[in-house]
Amino acid sequence: MPETQHNHREIIINVENLEHSYGNFKAVDGISFSVKKGEIFSFLGPNGAGKSTAINILITLLAKQKGDATVAGYDVTKDPQKVRESIGIVFQDITLDRDMTVWEILEFHGRLYNMPPEQRRKRIEELLDLVELGAKRNERTKNLSGGMKRRLEIARGLMTRPKVLFLDEPTIGLDPQTRMRMWDYIKGVNNEGTTIFLTTHYMDEADQLSDRISIIDQGKIVISGTSWELKNTLGRDLIYLETNDNNAAIRLLQDLPSVRDVKPKRKGFVLMVNEDGTKVLPVVIDVLRNAGIETLTINLKKPSMDDVFVFYTGKELRDEPSGKIPMRPGGR
């Protein structure tokens, strides 16, 4: 969605100069961002970047140390009760009592939030329909599949019709089909007006779902924008090259007017180009041939969110959890 559409909307989460330390370690180092009402906002970052710490402050589980944070117009420190009443949360790891039934999980949640019985029961039926768990209402949660558990948790997060729904890695450990169905649920919920605050490790997920994205690394926000804007910062196209003399090739190519930046890789390097890559490619090949450099491999592609993430955090995506859900959140 174009950015201008959101500019008129009111801000529902506002964070300014937020800082949080564990001992001498600054987990969150002065971040500022805002989320507008009705949008899907993604918060990306490698493990240990400070995502979970920031989210825990916003959902009032962790006391704020420094800076300002408001959710739904309420200060997380001064008005935690009001914040809690305004939000729904789907935690990173499954937080369902294994021995309670699907219906009991939702009933318990509604009672925790002091919903009147009639409203509670009505809402449970609506949500069981929405996440297609009506047939499982009397099943204990330990007998549900991973996807069903997540759907139940999303339903739980929506019980109170929150203004903001926090989704912390909502599709971790799910198979690709289930993930896509989950995206549909999330989009559906968002279309009904709920603001979504999403953290994820999956770049395609952020790309698919988010209106706006912020990437956090080592406690600082390194870049924010729409996925289109983020990808554009890497240039229009990416050209990956391996040659018999990469250093010489980089020296030659970095001065080409269409080359915005060069990023060395393990065996080759990537050119970020401002112009249509198919036009730049012949020029690159000519330059290398004239200098007597032999090209071994060549590849042209559009920048993806993966590329954006790797570029701004300097971390390859492989140091992620394998999808096994840890008992306690690993990255704070």
């Binding site: 009760q81 939000i87 949360i89 937080t95 949640h109 925790l112 939030y113 002091n114 008992m327």
Partner: peptide, 14 residues
């Protein structure tokens, strides 16, 4: 607490 269930309760307005 260890299974993460306490977070649901502590994050609620109760």
């Amino acid at each position: 607490k260890n299974w993460g269930l306490m977070r649901e309760i502590l994050a609620s307005p109760m």
